[in-house]
Every structure is written in C-alpha cells, then in structure tokens.
Design a protein around this nucleic acid. Structure first.
Lengths: 198, 198
DNA sequence: GCCGATGTTGCACTGACTGCAACTTTGCAT
DNA sequence: ATGCAAAGTTGCAGTCAGTGCAACATCGGC
C-alpha cells in the first residue's frame, strides 16, 4: 500500500524533518547564533558534513519550505483567466496562499519569532523574497503587462504580503490572515492616495 | 582657516575613503567573493584587523553611505507640512533623494553592478532597506496615520523606489531617475487597478 | 547476488569575524 | 614644551560557517 516512493526518498524526507525539528528546538532554547551546525547535527544524529547536503545555509533551516510557497502563488496565478486584470489576479493568488499560512499558524509563528530576533535569518528571507519577486514579475509580464509595470506590481505585492504578515503576527494572529491580506491588496488596488477601506 | 575638525577625524575619513576605493577596484577586478578582506587591507595600507573598525562586514563597503540616504528621506519628510496627505509627502521625499542618486550616477552604477552579481551584498542591502522601512513607518505614523496603514505605505514606498531604481539602471540610466520615481509613486497613488500613467 | 547510482561521512582547508591586550598617535591642559 | 588620557591601530589566537574531495555505505534495479 504505502507510498510509491522508495525507502531512499522517504528516509531523506525523514532526515530533513529531523534536522528541522532539532534545529528549531535548539534555536529557541539557545538562540540562533549560539547554536552551531555541529550541535544541530549531533541533535539530529547526522554528521556535521551531512547538514549541508540538506540545507545550503544554517539560515535556510528556518525558512525550509519557502520555495514551495512561491510555487503555490505562481501556480494559482497561472490558473486564473488570462483576461482578468493583473492586480486582481495577483491579489487573489496571494490570498489563496494566505489560507495556507493560516492553517500552519503554529509553525509559522515559531519561525517568525526566530526570524524577528535574528538579523541574518531576516536577511536570508528577504533575499528569497527578492527571488520570488523576479519570478512573479515574469509571470505577470506574460499577462500583457509592460515589464516595468509588472515589476512594480510584483514589488508591491510582495511588500503588501509582508506588511500583512507583520500585522497579523503583531496582532497575535487574532485576525484572519486572508482578510488582512485582502485589505492590504485592496488598498494598494484603490491607490495609496485614498484612505484605507471604509 | 581649515576645517573645524581635528586631524584625527580627517584622517579617519580619509582612511575610510581609501578602503572604499581600494575595495571597489578589487571587487570589480576579481569579483566580490574572490576578494579577501586581507587583500583589501593590503591595498588600503591598513592592518586586516583595522578593516573591521571601519566596516562591520565586507558587504558594507559596497553600501557605504546607505545610512545617510535614509537620513535624507526622513529629513525631507519631517520638513513637509503636517497636513499634506501622507502618500504625497512620502513620494515627494523619495523624489528628492532620487535627485541625489542622479547626481552621483557614476558611483551608484558601480555599486549596483557589484550588488547585482553578488547575492550576499544584495541581501545586506535588503536588510538595510528593511531597517529604513521601519523608521519610515514610524515617522509616517506621526502624521496621524494608523500604524498598520503607515507600515503598508512605508513598504510600498521602499518597494516602489527599488523598482524605480531597477528600471533606471536597466535603461542604462538614460531616463531621469526622479521622473521614473515620480511615475511609480503616482501609479501607486492612483491604485494598481488602474493602468500606468497615460 | 551484483553493479551503478545515490547518499553519508571524515578530513583538510579557507576566510569572515571577534575579544583581548599591547602599542602608537592625537588632543588637550598645564 | 611636556605629560597624560582618550582614541585609534595592530597582532594574536580563536570560533564557526561553508566547500571540495575522496573513501565508504546503502539502495534500487537487473
């Protein structure tokens, strides 16, 4: 019955999870900077050298599935009618991903706490976001939007999402993230000369 | 006659400039990553250890006067009438700084070229920008704007500025930066649901 | 059961960055 | 001038992330 993936692949994912979970625990206990890769390796029961076969940098453990997230946004965007106005389509796509965040709330909060108190992790996160922005801009360009406009749209979208996340986390995740995202994107859609939603 | 600053302070600034210029040359010749701090120190005629009394990281040499730039924006913003709509005021402030960029075109282009091909420098730059964003949001909050809205405004402004810079550099700096900035901020002001300026 | 591919490990190395303590230079007051 | 305190420079020893390489183990398919 099991999965159609071999033992090899399963083991790999298990190890990745083990590293991730061990690392998060240590980061929370001792702080990110005070935790060495060697310590993580020991806790995850792998050789130090092996760590870097799983994660390119120590920072990336905290940001493990960022890449998937982008895939989701782009996927959503591709699925939308080609004649839907670009900004609407982008907004809807981010909203959809916001639902994911809402679902994994617990994990997200843990990660963001570490990020908030560790500049190098925040920096790495921004770096990944910049990558997204480029990919996103490219897809938007596919929708008959001139390239510079597409770049502005993408930049605004990522910025809006980031601001929404901050507010959400700042509120102790009491609000619903998709709603916050919606509000921010609406505001950007109507124009920043306008006051926030009525 | 001379300056009202002692020999000490002057020497310090001279050394900083020497490091900066030596470093930029080496970065351009050999690439950022292939250039060691030791090499920079040798070229600038200082001890390796001294380098870190001038710049906290190797990356920061490329981004030397970023901090001043933010000061300028905030200064501009403070000087504007308190009852001017927030987004207008922010736009005008960034436009003013765009003039500075236009003036130092040569240096800026050198720096951005290095940044473009060196992820770690780009990351550091984003990190500094994130700092700006916070400071900016705080000042905007002072203008009777609710904090979440202020954060969105600040995020959008920084994003818009970044997009404008990219377009400007992408065009080989043929356009005038202040105009590009203006166009982007207008677009954000009118709303992204709207098409770009007529 | 064997073989090639994939994954793990150890080793040696580079290079950024830090704390500390010794030393040099500058600013200033007498 | 001269001498002292503050600020700046340097060298040293150390930590730690990250890399290339080569030996070894394990897995998947035949």
């Amino acid at each position: 019955m099991a999965a159609d993936e071999g033992l090899r692949a399963r083991k790999k994912r298990e190890t990745a999870r083990r590293i991730e979970s061990a690392a998060l625990d240590l980061f929370e206990r001792d702080g990110f900077d005070a935790t060495t890769v060697d310590a993580i390796a020991a806790a995850a029961d792998i050789a130090p050298r092996t760590f870097f076969h799983y994660f390119p940098t120590k920072e990336d453990v905290v940001l493990a599935d960022y890449a998937d997230r982008l895939e989701r946004v782009l996927g959503q965007l591709q699925d939308r009618e080609a004649d839907e106005p670009a900004w609407r389509a982008v907004g809807a796509s981010f909203r959809a991903v916001a639902e994911d965040y809402e679902r994994e709330r617990r994990l997200i909060v843990r990660r963001f706490r570490i990020m908030a108190e560790t500049p190098s992790v925040a920096a790495r996160s921004l770096q990944l976001q910049a990558g997204w922005e480029q990919d996103l801009a490219e897809v938007v360009t596919g929708r008959d939007v001139p390239a510079p406009t597409a770049r502005l749209l993408a930049a605004a979208a990522v910025a809006g999402m980031r601001a929404a996340l901050e507010d959400w986390l700042g509120s102790g995740t009491r609000a619903r993230l998709p709603d916050v995202v919606q509000a921010h994107f609406d505001h950007l859609g109507r124009g920043l000369d306008q006051p926030p939603s009525p």
